[in-house]
Amino acid sequence: MEKVKATRFTLIVLLFVQVRVHAQQADIIRPGLIRAQLTISPSYMFGDKHTYFYLHGNLEGFLNKKISVVGETYYYLGDQTSNNSKYEYNHSVFFGLSRHFTKKNNDLYIGLQPGISLTKLNANENNLTSTSVGVNPLFSTVVGYNFFVNRVFHFFVQTRFITGEHNYDIHQSLTELRFSAGLGFNLNMLKAK
């Protein structure tokens, strides 16, 4: 009985979403569109073969249908592979632009984002007496896809390849692949022409 109710509820939600999409397909992706999201992002670091987690936030503004400027932050949450993380923290900030390939409410994009990380190694895990905070230059490329459900929210997936080095205390490669997905919010700040 519960299962039937749940299925009915899901169908109603899907129907509602579909109706909204059809009603509002006209030009959600246009100059002035701002989108933002906050999600938990897992990663794979190639240097130590560990999986880390970040709180990933971004804010993006569309200059036209094809180009957007974007700022993104990752707040280090910890290591999933091991109880004792190699890093005390490894926060990072990126800024750059993306080239979008849009069709109706579908938005596939690639982007370039230079950035910096604020990284500190865990002294115990690295057999050091103390560690210092390092500011490390990073370079990243992103590939992602957004589906704009309506004028308020969208679903997104994103993959980011990061390359960089932590050159404090012990050299560590910061080359990493990060994945993000979830629900984001969007708003058209300019009137459609």
Partner: peptide
């Protein structure tokens, strides 16, 4: 404030 700044820069557009 951030949204206002972004809106301002977007208003400039790319033309």
């Amino acid at each position: 404030v951030a949204l206002l700044c972004i809106q301002g820069s977007l208003r400039g557009q790319d033309t």
